[in-house]
Amino acid sequence: MSGMNNGNLVEIRDLRVDFPNPSGFTQAVRGISFSMGREKLGIVGESGSGKSVTGRALMRLLPQAARVRAEALRFDGIDVLGASERQMRTLRGGRIGLIMQDPKYSLNPVMTVGRQISEAWLAHNRSGSGGGGKREARDAALTLLEQVRIRDPKRVLGSYPHEVSGGMGQRVMIAMMLAPNPDLLIADEPTSALDASVQAEILKLIEDLVSARGMGLMLISHDLPLVARFCDRVVVMYAGQVMEELPARDLHRAQHAYTRGLLDCMPSLSKKRARLPTLTRDAAWLERHA
């Protein structure tokens, strides 16, 4: 088992995350297990399902107070829970990129886009022989902006985050995360703040980049059909547990009542219904996994 990281980029076994509250601990993640290679994995669930916490745990980005336990929490064979802070720094933003929901809050408002991308590039290329020049970083930033299909990369390079639209901001964010050439991209609700038309473009962009660079993608979202369209495999989470894991193309054949319920309760343009079916939450869903 130990030498088996050849295919697995991420290996999670029995991950548990608790947050302290005034009267003890709240269980955010209760014993989930899955693994992924260089593929596109979707993690879907409603708010409070623990999907984001799982992504953060993998990068060790949870608050100090959180209690994280796991039988195994490995990234490319590295034990994330046992790794030194120094080792984690090379992982975070280096080998693992994180794209968050709203570029408005994740970009530095007083720094130009170009500088932010260059800094990201410099931070992880400085060790290279002779490399790490300012000029080189700028060129790299320009190339990256071209790669995220920004039409006028020269102009965007010199602009501030508030001068670009939401979709553009998210592209910049992606460019920044791609700068160190990561092995895994974690996208946490990357398009929830964007219009539907932009949403599709951004996800298509992420999909293309991930495929072209042979990275792994962990797409965390509440939107089941959306995730299914862009991923190979889907993990459905509810109340900190994995309900079901299935290939994305088999989503319409999902077995679990929760997955089916989620798919069914959305209003639809194609079929008219007087009332929407609502989800009846079954306590047995949790017992089976506990």
Binding site: E46, L262, C265, L276, T278, L279
Partner: peptide, 8 residues
């Protein structure tokens, strides 16, 4: 809201 809550 979440889709299940949206339906309600």
């Amino acid at each position: 809201l979440d889709v299940s809550v949206q339906a309600e």
